[in-house]
Design a protein around this nucleic acid. Sequence first.
DNA 1: TAACACAATTGGTACGTATCAATTGAGAAA
DNA 2: TTTCTCAATTGATACGTACCAATTGTGTTA
Lengths: 241, 241
Amino acid sequence: MADLVYKQVLQSLQQRIKTNQFPHNRLPDERSLSTEYQVSRSSIKRALNVLAQQGVIFKKRGSGTFVNPLYLKNKSIFRYEGSNLGITNNLKIEGYEPQIKVLDFAVIAAPPEIQEELFVTSEDFVYQIRRLRLIDERAIIIETSYIPIKLAPALTRQIVTGSLFDYFAKELHHTGTKALMTLKVQPSVATDQELLHLEPTEPVGIMEGIFFLDNGTPFEFSQLRIHYHYFSYNTFVDVAE
Amino acid sequence: MADLVYKQVLQSLQQRIKTNQFPHNRLPDERSLSTEYQVSRSSIKRALNVLAQQGVIFKKRGSGTFVNPLYLKNKSIFRYEGSNLGITNNLKIEGYEPQIKVLDFAVIAAPPEIQEELFVTSEDFVYQIRRLRLIDERAIIIETSYIPIKLAPALTRQIVTGSLFDYFAKELHHTGTKALMTLKVQPSVATDQELLHLEPTEPVGIMEGIFFLDNGTPFEFSQLRIHYHYFSYNTFVDVAE
DNA sequence: TAACACAATTGGTACGTATCAATTGAGAAA
DNA sequence: TTTCTCAATTGATACGTACCAATTGTGTTA
């Protein structure tokens, strides 16, 4: 996991930055870091690049590398939901153990809207899974997922009560590490209002996406309708050139 | 701009992928590409990494590199709003020329909420700029921005009628290429409903962020309240481990 | 036929070198 | 003092090498 050289450097640097060990928020130059850590400059660069892409540091050619001062003040923002798949795991981080309530578990012919995304035809069957996710007894997400039968022939209502990611990882020796996602906003519909305890004036955030296995095959399409109190997505954007 | 070796390779590969020039959606192995393009394998890797991070290709050790089949089918999703700063430029892409209506232009003492973000104290003054953005005569965004006076002493109501990004680029020789952003959802308030022509049941998407100059100093905090029809954010997420 | 072992293929990591480009600062010149 | 010039500093790009690790396919063996 962390046996890679650049990751060790990365972690060390993260630690040093967090504990404010760099005078004037300025990091040593790359060549110095290289000799200090006894690793090649390339590895230093790789570690620094990760930090730069996260917005933790700024690099400026000819001048040096500096800690983003906002990072020190407001570290919380720098935990990106953006870099975390799997809703179950995501919610776990918050401290509360999430619950899942299965609303619906059926096998249907693949609906036209998702045939393209999941590479199935109208001949193919998919699981349609509707689940309600709760934290601390409060319902916060209505999740509707579609999974092609042929990718997981043994799925049961029982399994679906738990984390699908864990199931895929354990049983199918595949980890879903990638997803193509879209975030949107919509007024709540009757079902939302009922399940998520919303007023008609209160909206939901939509988070929908296609999840890929590590071999590139799309294996799940899912839409999350999220109570607007709990919808928040942070990201650091860099537009080079 | 595109004189960099890896960018030339990148563009070439993008073109070849888009026009479906790889049998079985499989790219040649890195070593072959290296000799084919007459560049080092490192440069090939760099180009491929960009594509992989965009979700355009999948790499699998021991097996090869493959085009994400969804990319070919549904290229539109792969235009990320996520990788585009500057709202004016962003909207321009859609084809319609955006208009800006200045609602409010004032200098005030820095509000407490943004003092931390912009590194100013209650002693400092900031511009408070409220603007309405329209496309094709339709109001779609209410924007509220704060900019420290000391960073742009010469700002006028006139300038504010245009793109602030362009102004900063031209006059201050600084380009804002980085931002720390948060996406949220809220019910519309009276002002939203009035300006954006929304019903009380219709929500707004919130997009707020801190924009940095290329030297790392935060120079603008701005909040966008977006008509929910026009709020959409696409992103490709990869969680390595 | 089926199961296994092994070699070839292919991407990943790491190191090191050479060179370029932006910035900074010191020292010379005005 | 101020301004200018130039060398030193510092990150960026590119190349090439060596070796590792996952996968695949082939050929052998049971």
